[in-house]
């Protein structure tokens, strides 16, 4: 079971400038079931990325309780489960090839060396980078780098996949095809996904559930359920209606 339970999660950032601290997250409680695709939607600075940092164990100073697959994410260095993470930027190691970068992740999570080749080739095929395995990241376009990062995240066979605005740095056409790619892969693998975005249409296109965050301090304002069948189609008018509804809500009816 790869479920997630946040219980009254709060986060205060302390700095020299603000010794009393800046409240980034205010008592967020959220349960994500196994195999669910959940989008966290909200404006920049509302603390959605902080939720991912806490879930991934990168940020261990918070209040409240965080359980992943039933285990508490504690101040222990090893995370209870295997994670995939796609960051906003590709975060590839520039001195390694595409293959080398995925191998780095496979080795880190402890996947036996005998499986590397098959896994890597399989995932590179899936993301359309079959011919680029031995190429260094700087020789790839931004979209191809991000596809490498997606292949890396899936290749470790994660129980939970965390994605932090992974397509926001790409042009819209590339982002579109990447969303379709992601949805295709997700349909086959059915990982639990927590996907952070500020793009309402993207959230509607991808998610089962959309959790809307308030501006800072971030808290849950509203939840939407997207009841559209998969595979979803960009041209679907119901998707468009849903997106309008969510956008309207997020912007407070100002559009």
């Amino acid at each position: 079971m790869a479920d997630i339970a946040l219980q009254a999660l709060s986060k205060v950032y302390r700095s020299k400038v603000q010794p009393e601290g800046l409240l980034a997250l205010n008592r967020v409680s959220l349960a994500v079931a196994d195999h669910q695709f959940v989008c966290l939607l909200g404006p920049s600075g509302c603390g959605k990325s902080t939720v991912l940092n806490v879930l991934s164990g990168l940020d261990q100073e918070y209040d409240g309780e965080v359980r992943v697959a039933g285990a508490v994410v504690s101040h222990d260095s090893t995370h209870p489960i295997r994670l995939g993470y796609v960051f906003q930027e590709p975060r590839l190691l520039p001195w390694l090839t595409v293959r080398g970068n995925i191998e780095f992740a496979l080795e880190s999570v402890g996947i036996p060396k005998g499986q590397w080749r098959e896994r890597i080739n399989g995932w590179l095929d899936r993301v359309g980078l079959h011919d680029f395995a031995e190429v260094h990241p700087h020789e790839l376009s931004g979209g191809m780098q991000q596809r490498t990062s997606i292949a890396r995240a899936f290749a470790v066979d994660p129980e939970i996949l965390l994605m932090d605005e992974p397509f926001s740095g790409l042009d819209e056409l590339t982002a579109r095809s990447m969303r379709e790619l992601l949805l295709g892969i997700w349909l086959e693998t059915r990982k639990t996904v927590v996907f952070v975005t500020h793009n309402c249409f993207e959230a509607c296109f991808l998610a089962d559930r959309i959790i809307v965050f308030t501006p800072r301090p971030g808290s849950i304002k509203q939840e939407f359920t997207v009841e559209l069948d998969r595979p979803r189609n960009y041209e679907d008018p119901r998707l468009f209606d849903m997106s309008v509804k969510v956008t309207h809500f997020v912007t407070g009816g100002r559009e």
């Binding site: 960051f87 975060r91 780095f104 880190s108």
Partner: peptide, 11 residues
């Protein structure tokens, strides 16, 4: 950010 990436993959 690269170090964080490595940490997420439990390096």
């Amino acid at each position: 950010r690269l170090i964080d990436m490595a940490r997420v993959f439990r390096s």
